[in-house]
């Protein structure tokens, strides 16, 4: 199955590579986001040294974990961002008469260049920052890192899938998605514990994005979690499974409710 996904993604990528200059401009343009991300961390820490007890390198390491996971999400799962259109344009009429499950059909459609524009900056960030923070790397650590990165991508997808479920009733869900994305793109640069009570609660139990980078970072730094349970730094894979189960269940209920818009 994975082989088919990768093959289809490669074909989509190739179709975009037909116009190489365009492709490069898009990659360069979207990579500017990476620069913004670094500045959002660098400027406050250059003025005040630490944010919630963590300096530039620690925060950079935490953020690179998030961005790498996000890069995996962009490569494999980001087609669900356009879910509204699939419902509105009646694409589901086509999905439902084909033998393959609609999830596979959506996942295999299109290639987001986000995969490249997230990976180039984030892996660079990870390599540089991980040499500046005190982490003893061993086989177990590295294995855990790989599991964390994939689980993080699944967590992001699970939320996306859950929100996609709403579009079977409301057709327009872009602002609901936008709300989740505000947490995803604007609160991940800083440690969750600085945000009082409401935001850490949301990032842990509603949109569990804190498990993508904030909690796992505690594991790598071998420190106790400041909020909630000391078990949370290890919980990322478990959270990914639970979140995906909930997201998939809700989306399936929505699908059963699907009525073609007739377009």
């Amino acid at each position: 199955m994975l082989k088919i996904i990768l093959l289809l993604k490669w074909k989509s990528l190739k179709s975009q590579l037909q116009y190489p200059a365009n492709f490069l401009i898009a990659v360069a343009g979207i990579s500017v986001i990476g620069v913004t991300d670094i500045l959002l961390i660098l400027i406050p820490t250059s003025a005040f040294e630490t944010i919630g007890g963590w300096g530039f390198w620690e925060l950079g390491f935490m953020f690179s974990l998030w961005k790498m996971s996000h890069g995996i999400h962009q490569a494999l799962f980001s087609s669900f961002w356009g879910h509204d259109n699939l419902v509105r344009n009646g694409e589901y009429d086509r999905f439902l008469v084909r033998p393959a499950h609609p999830i596979w059909q959506i996942l295999t459609s299109g290639f987001s260049i986000g995969a490249i524009t997230e990976w180039l900056p984030s892996v660079t960030m990870f390599i540089i920052t991980s040499s500046q923070v005190a982490i003893e790397w061993n086989v177990f650590n590295i294995l855990f890192l790989l599991i964390i990165l994939f689980s993080g991508a699944v967590i992001e997808w699970a939320v996306s899938l859950f929100i996609s479920g709403f579009s079977f009733w409301f057709v327009q869900t872009q602002h609901l998605r936008g709300t989740a994305h505000t947490f995803l793109f604007r609160a991940m640069h800083y440690p969750s514990h600085i945000f009082g009570r409401a935001i850490p609660f949301i990032l842990t139990f509603v949109f569990p994005y804190a498990f993508m980078s904030y909690y796992p970072t505690h594991y790598f730094f071998a420190i106790d979690s400041r909020i909630y349970s000391d078990f949370f730094p290890y919980a990322t894979p478990l959270v990914a499974i639970i979140a995906l189960a909930i997201g998939f269940a809700f989306w399936s209920i929505g699908l059963r409710n699907y009525q073609s818009t007739g377009t």
């Binding site: 365009n22 401009i25 898009a26 990659v27 360069a28 343009g29 979207i30 500017v32 620069v35 913004t36």
Partner: peptide, 14 residues
């Protein structure tokens, strides 16, 4: 430029 998303994001972020 045929695909303007790069430009869109670059401008927005800057």
């Amino acid at each position: 430029i045929a695909s303007v998303w790069g430009l869109f994001y670059a401008k927005w972020n800057l």
